[in-house]
């Protein structure tokens, strides 16, 4: 797979480390009432979709940025690549 890095252009997937579903960006609030349940679901349960998935890749052997890659798990086609920090900023801004 070739990941089209927003800053560096097309890079081979073997330069990256895979973390998993991009929902991991949204860490639960440790202070909330049912924090234990929320962290259990956050850490261990997955949607594991057959089709489009948004996921976190770390450019370990490159510029060490975190990317959010939108990919199809049935075809390995990569639809969109964004910097995770941009998404995080946008989400915090819209809150």
């Amino acid at each position: 797979m070739i990941i089209n890095h927003p800053l560096l252009g097309p890079r081979d997937a073997s330069e990256f480390i895979y973390l998993g579903d991009a929902s991991l960006i949204d860490r639960p609030d440790w202070n909330s009432e049912n924090a234990a349940q929320q962290f259990y679901e956050y850490l261990y349960l997955r949607d594991n979709p057959a089709g489009t998935i948004r996921e976190l890749w770390f450019h370990e052997y490159g510029d060490r940025s975190w990317l959010v890659v939108t990919r199809n798990t049935l075809t390995h086609e990569i639809v969109n690549v964004e910097l995770a920090r941009d998404i995080d900023r946008e989400e915090k801004h819209s809150r």
Binding site: M1, A13, Y18, G20, A50, I53, T73, L74, T75, H76
Partner: peptide
């Protein structure tokens, strides 16, 4: 090492 249902690897 990545999620897939494609029955083929890289």
């Amino acid at each position: 090492g990545y999620n897939t249902y494609a029955q083929r690897g890289n």
